[in-house]
């Protein structure tokens, strides 16, 4: 019994070791997954889910953002600043809050995606654009909604609830 068990474990062990060797040698000859980045810049494929930059998709010159500021509250490190303005509807005469500027400070973003998850209108999303290096830190602060040239002078205020 003991002897049979001895040889059983011996040959069983050899068989499993050979299985392992077979697996690794197939990986050895497999095509390598390393991306040689600067050389293959033109053909580089980054996963769609990669979080590179926060963007606000614009359809027909309009964004889905309603300026509710939930993303600003969700952001753990004050990356997002939503500046709203009050617009009076000429028909009803009621004032309505509307997005004025959506300021995103790329330099302090940790790509946690809490803002995207918090947004009730799917107005913002992360794109895999990752080459964001600039020479000036001010250039990292950008406005995500389209910049509109309005005749009225913009209220050049620092966001009140920073």
């Amino acid at each position: 019994m003991g002897v049979i068990n001895y040889f059983k474990t011996l040959f069983g062990a050899i068989a499993t070791l050979l299985t392992g060797l077979k697996t690794t040698i197939t990986v050895f000859f497999r095509k390598k997954t390393t991306q040689c980045y600067p050389e293959n810049r033109s053909t580089l494929k980054i996963s769609e889910r990669f979080r590179g930059t926060l963007t606000m998709p614009v359809v027909d010159g309009k964004t889905k953002c309603i300026g509710c500021g939930i993303c600003q509250n969700a952001c753990p490190n004050g990356t997002i600043t939503v500046i709203t303005r009050s617009v009076v509807n000429p028909e009803t005469g009621k004032a309505k809050k509307e997005l004025d500027r959506y300021i995103y400070d790329h330099g302090s973003c940790t790509y946690c995606q809490l803002c995207v998850n918090a947004c009730p209108y799917d107005a913002i999303k992360f794109t895999p654009e990752f080459e964001c290096a600039v020479f000036n830190r001010n250039k990292l602060v950008m406005q995500l909604n389209p910049v509109v040239e309005t005749e009225e002078v913009k209220p050049n205020v620092e966001p009140e609830n920073k």
């Binding site: 690794t24 990986v27 050895f28 497999r30 390598k32 997954t33 390393t34 040689c36």
Partner: peptide, 13 residues
């Protein structure tokens, strides 16, 4: 190099 190839990467290049 061999280690890299076994781990499906290129190794030093």
């Amino acid at each position: 190099k061999v280690c890299g190839a076994f781990q499906c990467r290129l190794g030093p290049n």
